[in-house]
Design a protein around this nucleic acid. Structure first.
Length: 447
RNA sequence: GCGACUGUAGCUCAGCGGUAGAGCCCUCGGUUGUGGUCCGAGUGGUCGCGGGUUCGAACCCCGUCAGUCGCCCCA
């Protein structure tokens, strides 16, 4: 190994691309299992779509403001770059657009309403930050149907979300906040705000919790030119928040704005909140400051936050879209879906020290190798134990027992097995925790 | 894309103009087949990179790259 230091590529983490040590990865896998079992308990089917889609497909919904990673071949020369036959590929930035493509493509083979779950990495080129990654897992469920989709599904989504957060053993409460874009948009239109300003106004209203009411009014007036009264009226809706469906609806009505869309939205929101009223107080609330991305959501919208750390950002979100597949197929297909931000939530747990590191490996038994001549007997012993269903590791060289025990200790392996060796013709097993060592038969020893 | 701060050993950091340091980790040892402690020894650094100032730069200046946090946006 004459590698000159100067030629070594210094190992370093790439910002925004998280990875965990084995003792935490185990827990991440447990999370996947827990989430999957809840998804399946509600009858969702699993699919997986490729990491890439054609760039045109990803952009079809006009989501061009997302930071999309495109793929390029290192060997691509000028000639092939001009080759139009190669469609440009890009990494998906969420799982909803791939779903739309998938449903359109496999339309004839799917059963509707199509309920699917998908747990995959997604990629976004945004600048990394605390809780914000460039590569991360999203765990999604969506229901998509032809022509119309019952409102019951709008209530099922937060219920599934709630169940998952319960299952993950989190140290802090997660709150699911629900609103309805028809309420928000209808209210603002009813106030007389121009349709083409709705997006800008809602974007600012969304910041109420982060920057406070005064600053919201300031931005609405300074940046958008709303007069102070209109700004305050706009804000009035966003201040409404609460658990009881009826009171929430009445509070909106008390603002005295009349608009058909608003009425429709209130009816939907009431249905959803009322349906969830059996859940513990504060776990699910109506919150009219919720805005969500403006791309395709049209009805119910929801976000989930860590109550003690809302600045950390949403750890789950979702909503209803009137027509998801419009750009892929000539059918109207409404849907509703949610996404659990697994990586964000998991990283919060790791960084906050909320996770108890697990064993480095799942090895149950380490079989000692006494000498190079005894390799055969050690291997046979390991096989016997492995055939009985245990996870067994055979130590990789005949070094001092001290080193082999130390290895087992560090890896958290609970048992060390000593096959017969010179002078001793029985097997022995040591319980690392109690330090007790006994004569044992690998064929039938009960651990 | 914009702004603030930070880059010294594998990790956490000290040093802040005069020949590179600590703790942890790792390796070896404290005799015979037995791990968590303790003791001793050792390996390991282009002080992010490139210029400049200076007799002399890890330290000062400029640039650059990277990281962290915030804005934007979002899981």
């Amino acid at each position: 190994m004459k590698n000159k230091k100067t030629s070594i590529y210094k190992a370093k983490a790439i910002s925004g691309y998280p990875e965990w040590l084995p003792e935490y990865r185990v827990i991440e896998l447990q999370w996947f299992d827990a989430i999957r079992s809840v998804f399946e308990s509600y009858g969702y089917s699993s699919i997986e779509t490729p990491s890439v889609e054609e760039l045109d497909a990803l952009m079809a919904k006009g989501a061009s403001d997302k930071e999309i990673y495109t793929l390029a071949r290192l060997q691509a020369d000028e000639e092939s770059k001009k080759d139009k036959s190669d469609a440009r590929l890009a990494l998906h930035f969420d799982l909803t657009v791939p779903l739309a493509r998938y449903v359109s493509q496999h339309f004839n083979n799917l059963i509707f309403p199509f309920k699917r779950y998908q747990m995959q990495r997604v990629w976004r080129g945004e600048r990394p930050q605390k809780g914000r990654f460039r590569e991360f897992y999203q765990c999604d469920i969506d229901v998509i149907n032809i022509d119309n989709l019952p409102l019951h599904f709008d209530a099922e989504m937060p219920r599934v979300m709630h169940e998952i957060y319960q299952k993950l053993n989190l140290p802090e409460k997660i709150q699911i906040r629900i609103s309805n874009r028809k309420v928000l948009v209808g209210y603002l239109l009813g106030l007389g705000i121009a349709e083409d300003m709705i997006a800008d106004v809602t974007r600012i209203l969304d910041k109420i919790e982060k920057i406070g009411s005064d600053n919201v009014v300031k931005q609405l007036t300074d940046d958008l030119g709303l007069d102070t009264k209109l700004a305050e009226q706009s804000l009035a809706l966003s201040k409404i928040r609460g658990g009881k469906a009826k009171e929430l609806i009445n509070a909106v009505k008390a603002l005295g704005v009349n608009n058909d869309l608003l009425e429709q939205g209130l009816t939907e929101l009431f249905f959803v909140l009322d349906n969830l009223s059996d859940l513990p107080d504060g776990d699910v609330i109506g919150d009219l400051s919720i805005v969500r991305g403006l791309d395709y959501y049209t009805g119910t919208i929801l976000e989930a936050y860590i109550v003690s750390d809302t600045d950390f950002g949403a750890v789950g979100s979702g909503g209803r879209y009137e027509d998801l597949t419009g750009s892929f197929i000539n059918k109207k297909m409404p849907g509703i879906g949610i996404s659990i931000g697994l990586t964000r939530l998991f990283s919060w747990m790791v960084d906050g020290g909320h996770l108890e590191p697990q064993r480095f490996s799942s090895t149950d038994i380490l079989v000692v190798q006494s000498s190079s001549e005894s390799y055969e007997v050690s291997m046979q012993t390991a096989n016997i134990l492995r055939n009985r269903g245990f996870n067994v590791e055979l130590f990789h060289s005949a070094v001092k027992i001290k080193k082999q025990l130390s290895y087992a200790e560090k890896k958290g392996i609970p048992y060390v097995w000593f096959p017969p060796f010179e002078g001793v013709d029985v097997h022995e097993v040591k319980d690392m925790k109690s330090r007790v060592q006994l004569v044992a038969d690998p064929e039938n020893y009960i651990f």
